[in-house]
Computed example of a mutant assay.
Amino acid sequence: MNRLGFMSYIYMGWTVEQMAADARSHGMSLVQLDPKQKLQLMDDQPFSQARAEAVRESFEKQGISIVGLSGYTNLMNPNLQKREDKLVQLEKMIDLCPVYGTRYIATETGSLHPTNAWRDYEGNRTPEAWDELLRIVDRLRSRAVKNDAVLLLEGFALNILATVEQAVSLVEQLGSEGLGIIMDPFNYLTQEDLKQQDAAMTNIFNRIEAYAPIAHAKDTLYSEEGFTTPRVGAGYADWNVYAKLISSRMPEVPLILEHAKPEEVAECLKLVHQAFANAAAEKADEANGR
């Protein structure tokens, strides 16, 4: 089964030692870390090299490797000053990738919605918005290349980067040097896709697996509140399909748990393990001609 890890925000308010101990107890050995998160370790210097070194060493002593950084922000914030401030902050985090011991830093692309980066907005679908996104991503990609790092984009159905077709187009236009995509089908699945998940997820893998060094573990939910991606088991994504695809086509890619609370981690991972067991059993049956 793929190596398992966790998003650091699952353990918000915990120290490195506390989150590492809990993660290890669940069989996880990797973390996608938010450098801005308070860890009771030089928190007054969030973007200093000294803190990055201290955090990395502390995790490594606890048996946890930093697989990537979480630099999530709205790249297309309609407030231009806030946008620039966040881009500069993200560039500082890109510079710290080597110090944290990882090549990867992830962000979503965001939305032009005036108040909510997770809501759709008609301006997101314009050629002008796409061209501006390309300009911003190329700026960040170039910064990543200088640090031997890779900027990983996480698409989302209501953001400017909303489909896997757009993800492929973006990489093809800018090139894959210093640029990749998070394998996260849960963010792309439409309500129609949920009726044909085998075909939908296979298409997602076909499109972006070559560009995806990290995969995420969560779910897909459409409700009265709209489209969300909750923890594993809290939506309608078919994890048997996902486990089969990722175990057979991307077995070396780490799988990072998202959107769970500490007390929900065990149940989420139980569902993940069961899905992988089902995938292995199906593969065995096929090998035996059953």
Rank of each mutant, 00 (worst) to 15 (best):
N2Y: 11
R3N: 06
F6Q: 03
F6H: 08
Y11T: 04
W14L: 09
E17H: 13
M19I: 05
L30N: 03
L39K: 04
Q40M: 11
L41W: 04
M42Q: 05
P46T: 08
F47V: 09
Q49W: 11
Q49F: 12
E53T: 15
Q62M: 13
I64S: 07
V67N: 00
G68F: 03
G71A: 05
L75F: 10
C97D: 00
C97Y: 02
T102L: 06
Y104K: 05
E108V: 14
S111G: 05
H113P: 06
P114T: 06
N116G: 06
A117Y: 05
W118K: 14
Y121I: 04
P127V: 06
W130H: 03
E132H: 12
L134S: 01
R135M: 03
R139A: 06
V145I: 10
G155R: 08
A157L: 12
L158P: 01
A162M: 05
S169I: 10
L170C: 08
L179Y: 04
G180S: 04
I181R: 02
Y188S: 09
Y188M: 12
A199K: 15
A200I: 07
M201Q: 14
R207H: 08
I208E: 01
A212L: 05
P213A: 07
I214E: 00
E224W: 13
P230W: 05
V232Q: 02
G233Y: 11
V241T: 14
Y242V: 14
A243M: 11
E252F: 14
P254M: 08
L255Q: 01
K261F: 00
K261Y: 01
A266V: 11
E267T: 14
K270W: 04
L271F: 11
H273M: 07
H273L: 08
A275E: 00
A281V: 10
K283W: 11
N288S: 11
G289Q: 12
